[in-house]
């Protein structure tokens, strides 16, 4: 690699680096400064208090631990369900079936629906819709209070979260499946491999890049879960479904502790950073180079 290509290297990545810096890093860093202050988010001056907020956070705030546990549970279930289901559906949707294009569209639509409408419709389905279906079918699970019971609300939120985002992962898996060269699959068929072993022995390893992307995306989306909870339960019933981001939001904008909120955001960011690096490393190690 010569001098010229080093220059190119910097040149070609620079625009991306600059854009990311001014839209995300710069505001985030400035905002992190407030974690060292006591500030209500409104008044014109913030009072510098050093590491006080972090002290409060680590030694005086069991609530934050609770929301981290909730977020962890949510992320695990969300990753598992959305990746497995998306992979299965994507495998079917790349087959030569007539309705494939429309079906892909169908699975994608929830991803772009407005959260307020999603909240309204699902609340209605969970209450009145389920009640009506219960009258017809008599199936017990329909008569449960899915959004009103602290334990069930967790599963309801995960379910709607997966429903809303599944299409996103399907699109990514489809792109990966379509990138597998036809001749590889044909060769496997000629070798006499059955559908299932073709899937596990040939397709899955070759899907490496897609799996890495989807695992990483579902991990970050799971950890950052916000909108869907706000729309469905607003953290309720009785505070049972607060995620980390929702808690940060509440601390900063509802309780007007912008300083403590920023401290939480910073700590949470570090946790997420570490988690994602671990997942990325594991997932990359298992990738097969073509």
């Amino acid at each position: 690699m010569g001098n010229k290509s080093k220059k190119e290297l910097i040149l070609f990545t620079l625009p991306a680096l600059i854009m990311v810096s001014i839209t995300i890093y710069l505001p985030f860093v400035i905002s992190s400064y407030y974690s060292l202050t006591e500030w209500n988010g409104i008044s014109k001056s913030a009072k510098f208090i050093g590491l006080q907020n972090f002290k409060t956070l680590f030694f005086n705030n069991s609530q934050f631990l609770n929301v981290l546990i909730f977020t962890g549970k949510y992320t695990f279930l969300f990753m598992l369900l959305s990746n497995v289901m998306a992979l299965i559906l994507a495998t079917f949707l790349v087959q030569k079936i007539k309705t494939a294009n429309i079906l892909r569209g169908v699975f994608f639509v929830p991803y772009i629906m407005s959260m307020i409408i999603v909240g309204f419709i699902w609340k209605f389905i969970f209450s009145q819709g389920f009640a009506r279906l219960f009258e017809i079918t008599g199936w017990g699970f329909l008569n449960l209070s899915w959004l009103g019971n602290a334990h069930l609300a967790f599963y309801a939120v995960v379910f709607v979260g997966v429903w809303q985002q599944l299409g996103f992962y399907i699109v990514l898996y489809i792109a990966g499946l379509q990138a597998i060269p036809e001749d590889v699959m044909e060769a496997a068929t000629v070798d006499g491999a059955g559908a299932l072993s073709r899937f596990f022995r040939v397709k899955l390893p070759l899907l490496g890049p897609s799996i890495t992307i989807c695992l990483f995306m579902s991990l970050t989306n799971g950890l950052k879960v916000f909108d869907i909870i706000l729309a469905l339960t607003q953290g309720g019933p009785g505070g049972a479904t607060y995620s980390a981001t929702l808690d940060i939001y509440r601390e900063a904008f509802q309780y007007n502790n912008y300083g403590l909120g920023s401290a939480k955001a910073l700590v949470f960011f570090l946790i997420v950073l570490i988690m994602t690096q671990i997942v990325l490393t594991i997932s990359r190690r298992n990738e097969v180079e073509v």
Binding site: A150, G236, P237, G238, G239
Partner: peptide
Amino acid sequence: EAMQAYVG
């Protein structure tokens, strides 16, 4: 939130 936890 407290009242909802009570009602629930």
